[in-house]
Design a protein around this nucleic acid. Structure first.
Lengths: 257, 257
DNA sequence: CTTCGACATTCACATATGTTAACGCGCTTA
DNA sequence: TAAGCGCGTTAACATATGTGAATGTCGAAG
């Protein structure tokens, strides 16, 4: 079921995690190498699998494909709490702090690499700048969740969808997965519904209306933002929450000073 | 407006941040002292103020009182993304990574202490175990936000309220602010509404129904969970997401090994 | 004692969104 | 070629929750 798939890592320039971290700080060549060395196993995961077996000692880094974190209530209702895109790490909390309180599932075939949780833990002693980078990635998740809370709590269906499509565009752009205002979104309307706290039918209704207004196209797993400006004004979108700059005290630390 | 208020720190045993961190790991005496030394200014903040002036270089630790993080949409709708209770740090992300994407406000008079962001940043080099603890606190926020997303996305008003009251009970218990099944909740129904994505009227309706069923009492800023078991079964509550154990690689690190 | 304002509480009514159930289309598989 | 299945699309109808407005209560301020 899972075969090795080594060619993916060849082109270092396109490692999506590194692209993402560059947004936070300049990485030295050594640090890039440390990050690359973290991965000990690259694998292909088919659609519909868990990204990490529960109680795993490992962290998973998605290189290609889409996955999600979700929770299921006792009666079957499902809430997707976040989409996991290339460059995203999953399982850091479970590894570092022994708590895992959601499940993950690949929404498409995915290419992932596994990282030993121990190696992430060691960063705190051996590469504080990278430990801070991991903390940042976690804080960024937190910021996205905050936006998600705002959407679910106070935005209507139209606004929620606008926000989702714009945020996905921002995130994918950072890791090099968009072409201008278009990007692949290889998931089902049911998944959008489970993410936005809506019913499938209402997602479909809302999508239809937005298409009709010329706001966006969405077919065949492809999204085109036809009127990004209006979409932004609909939901008050702002991509600040995805950004960051490392505190100089960490970025420029000099142990001799 | 803000006066010094030094007596609060006298009883080290009741520093709520330390109580919280004990949940994650055993703290050495030295570490406890480092944490205590972080605070450089204790102050009283009246109700209705921002916990941290925006663009602050500081982190704020709440010692007593309630506050919240929130976002306001352009037309005035408000979403409270989380309640900030004693022992909680705010502004870590803003300090460490230069991004702050929400506002904070005290919901009651608060006693807070300020911590220089530099000192938090230095932990990554000088006290990796404590840096990990800060990362944990952030990951715990993330877990609470995840639960919040689930509530807003897939739980109805009754379930949302049950979950909120139970989670607050768990959180306050950890820092020593509950008496059995009762605790002070000195906020307005409007704030509950803004937190749970409901209207004031509906919060009131739902509260009335829950009181009538003998699930809880709620008056005069006091909550009593009359039937915690049933409340738990209503929303499938579980407090795992508040817990944690530090990865042994960090907890027991031996640089000589 | 009176006034006023902040909150809680209700009521009547409005509406965004959910539910159930069809139907069609394009794959895959036999 | 036909059957089956996943998914998108619609329609008719149901309901949880929102809205607007009035009333009550209590404490603070004068």
């Amino acid at each position: 079921m899972q075969e090795n798939y080594d060619c993916v890592m060849e082109n270092l320039a396109t490692n999506p995690l590194i692209e993402k971290l560059k947004l936070l700080m300049d990485l030295t060549d050594d640090e890039v190498q440390v990050i690359l060395d973290l991965s000990f196993k690259t694998q292909k995961l088919p659609k519909g699998q868990s990204l990490i077996p529960s109680n795993s000692e490992n962290v998973s880094l998605v290189m290609d494909g889409w996955a999600c974190r979700y929770k299921i209530l006792s009666d079957g209702r499902r809430q997707i709490t976040s989409f996991i895109l290339p460059g995203d790490l999953t399982g850091v909390r479970a590894c570092l702090f022994g708590v895992s309180d959601f499940d993950t599932e690949t929404l498409t075939d995915c290419v992932t690499t596994l990282i030993d949780g121990k190696d992430i833990a060691r960063l705190f002693y051996e590469a504080p700048r990278l430990a801070a980078a991991v903390t940042w990635a976690s804080a960024r998740e937190e910021a996205m969740l905050t936006e998600h809370v705002v959407s679910l709590g106070r935005r209507n269906a139209r606004e929620r969808m606008a926000h989702l499509f714009l945020e996905l565009h921002s995130r994918l752009e950072i890791v090099g997965f968009v072409e201008k205002l278009a990007y692949g979104m290889p998931i089902t309307q049911e998944m959008i519904a489970d993410c936005l706290g809506l019913s499938i039918v209402h997602v479909n209704r809302t999508l239809k209306a937005m298409r009709k207004e010329g706001l966006l196209e969405y077919y065949n797993g492809y999204v085109i933002l036809k009127n990004a400006k209006k979409l932004r004004s609909i939901c008050g979108y702002d991509s600040n929450h995805l950004e960051g700059t490392l505190h100089p005290e960490i970025a420029d630390y000099d142990p001799d000073a």
